Amino acid sequence: MIHIKTNIKKGGLWSLLCFLLAVSTVNGQSFFTAKTLPQSDRYGTITTRLVPEDIVRLIEERNLNFDEWSSFFYVQTSPSGPAVLGAYGIETNHLSFTPKFLPDPNIKYLVTFSYPKLAELLSGQIEETSIYSDVASFEPPEATQPEVISFIPKLHDVPANLLRFYVYFSAPMSLQNPYDFITIEDKNGKALVDPFVIVPEGLWNIDHTRLTLLLHPGRVKQGVGPNMTLGDVLLAGNSYTLKIDPAWKGSSGEPLKEAFTQTINATNPLRGAMNINNWALKAKVNNGIGILTVVTDHPLDQPLAQRMLFLRNMEGQILPVQINFENPEQLQILWRHQGSQELELLIDPRLEDVCGNTPHYAFDLEGTERTPSQEELKIKFKIE
């Protein structure tokens, strides 16, 4: 599939003229379709159904940039309305346009496809002269109740100076303030005061399905103002319960399927930098798949580790890998084995454990300062 980001800039008299002169069907069939993408309530797609396959191939061979795409295929909210941001694509012999933002079921989209403009672009390789234009709209997605499907770190006991929680949802959540629905209570049911860094819109991934809850670093880090006045968020030896109110709504408008609770047992703080020399590595090959098991000295921040651990062969090539966590202190890295018996595990020096410690830096020790390092961290290993 080709994906090209675009800012479409068509409008005024040209768009109005195309709209007035264009047709919208071929032999009674609609030239365009608009639908919500499968398993997503954030995006939709507009597809040209009846462009001949040989013309689609000519377009695909050109590897068009967005200016070229938008010269013959463009989308607006009206003949003279604002441009629609989005991405073009070719898939299964159809041309498509995907709006960047959630399509509004209440808005009609003007879609135009101009063969004359395409002929200019392809230097006369096609003779078709029709202009097709139609009004497209999107059906609202089916409403489903979201639910919490995962909570990280997956630890029964957590260090008292833990820095982050991650909450995963089955569907995109709404833009409501997350902290109106999330509390941490002590063993007596009393809610903790200001445990989180408050970001009103929340710290979300792009799909709005993973929320990062950042425990207040000023209270976690020893010897700084908030820690001195308010104290630690979690105290070693105490038990807490994180609760998520089921009144919180997903982006579909439906509330959570059920309340969520997570027990948090705080143990001794984990202070001090990670030491990769204490990591244990063991590699083997099974049915052509390399399997590297890594046991670390600190429980890792799993989402960060997914982006900051790499494998490199002795020829200097970075290998595509899949990283699976047994728990925050043990993970497996899988790759397609192609004969190399010796490889390197590369570690981004910014990698953190669950308490914000890196291989060069202890997060919450009084008087320590973060010193960025460009040093390449690597561990060589051999396949058994």
Score class of each variant (00 low, 15 high):
residue 93 N to Y: 10
residue 84 V to Q: 15
residue 74 Y to G: 03
residue 125 Q to A: 10
residue 87 A to W: 10
residue 74 Y to N: 13
residue 48 T to I: 11
residue 128 E to I: 09
residue 119 A to D: 04
residue 26 V to D: 00
residue 133 S to D: 05
residue 31 F to G: 11
residue 82 P to A: 09
residue 92 T to H: 10
residue 152 I to G: 09
residue 46 I to Q: 08
residue 110 L to S: 06
residue 125 Q to I: 01
residue 48 T to L: 13
residue 75 V to E: 13
residue 99 P to T: 04
residue 94 H to L: 01
residue 69 W to A: 08
residue 36 T to G: 10
residue 142 E to W: 00
residue 85 L to G: 15
residue 149 I to S: 02
residue 36 T to E: 07
residue 133 S to P: 05
residue 123 S to M: 05
residue 50 L to Y: 14
residue 83 A to H: 15
residue 57 R to D: 12
residue 40 S to V: 03
residue 121 L to A: 04
residue 21 L to C: 09
residue 90 I to P: 12
residue 29 Q to N: 12
residue 49 R to W: 06
residue 103 P to G: 12
residue 38 P to Q: 07
residue 40 S to D: 09
residue 79 P to C: 14
residue 94 H to D: 00
residue 29 Q to H: 10
residue 53 E to Y: 05
residue 68 E to C: 07
residue 136 A to G: 08
residue 100 K to C: 15
residue 42 R to W: 08
residue 35 K to S: 12
residue 85 L to T: 15
residue 41 D to W: 09
residue 73 F to N: 09
residue 59 I to P: 00
residue 106 N to R: 01
residue 30 S to I: 00
residue 142 E to V: 02
residue 127 E to L: 00
residue 105 P to D: 03
residue 30 S to L: 00
residue 49 R to A: 12
residue 79 P to H: 13
residue 47 T to Y: 06
residue 19 F to V: 04
residue 120 E to P: 01
residue 39 Q to A: 12
residue 54 D to E: 14
residue 116 P to H: 13
residue 135 V to L: 10
residue 51 V to S: 09
residue 33 T to D: 08
residue 67 D to Y: 13
residue 19 F to N: 14
residue 52 P to Y: 08
residue 39 Q to W: 05
residue 29 Q to C: 02
residue 50 L to A: 13
residue 148 V to R: 07
residue 55 I to F: 03
residue 105 P to W: 03
residue 92 T to I: 06
residue 58 L to G: 01
residue 96 S to P: 03
residue 48 T to P: 03
residue 34 A to K: 06
residue 57 R to F: 06
residue 64 L to I: 12
residue 80 S to R: 09
residue 45 T to E: 15
residue 87 A to V: 11
residue 50 L to D: 12
residue 125 Q to G: 02
residue 131 I to F: 04
residue 54 D to F: 09
residue 141 P to W: 00
residue 134 D to S: 15
residue 111 V to T: 11
residue 43 Y to W: 09
residue 69 W to L: 11
residue 123 S to D: 07
residue 151 F to P: 02
residue 65 N to F: 06
residue 34 A to M: 11
residue 150 S to W: 03
residue 38 P to Y: 04
residue 61 E to N: 06
residue 128 E to D: 11
residue 111 V to A: 01
residue 81 G to Q: 14
residue 97 F to K: 02
residue 71 S to F: 05
residue 111 V to C: 02
residue 45 T to M: 11
residue 133 S to A: 15
residue 111 V to W: 00
residue 144 T to V: 04
residue 141 P to M: 01
residue 138 F to S: 00
residue 150 S to M: 04
residue 22 A to F: 07
residue 95 L to Q: 02
residue 57 R to K: 12
residue 90 I to F: 13
residue 52 P to I: 05
residue 69 W to G: 10
residue 20 L to P: 00
residue 124 G to Q: 05
residue 136 A to L: 13
residue 137 S to R: 13
residue 152 I to K: 11
residue 103 P to N: 15
residue 47 T to W: 06
residue 72 F to M: 04
residue 70 S to F: 09
residue 27 N to I: 01
residue 85 L to P: 14
residue 117 K to S: 05
residue 93 N to F: 02
residue 48 T to W: 02
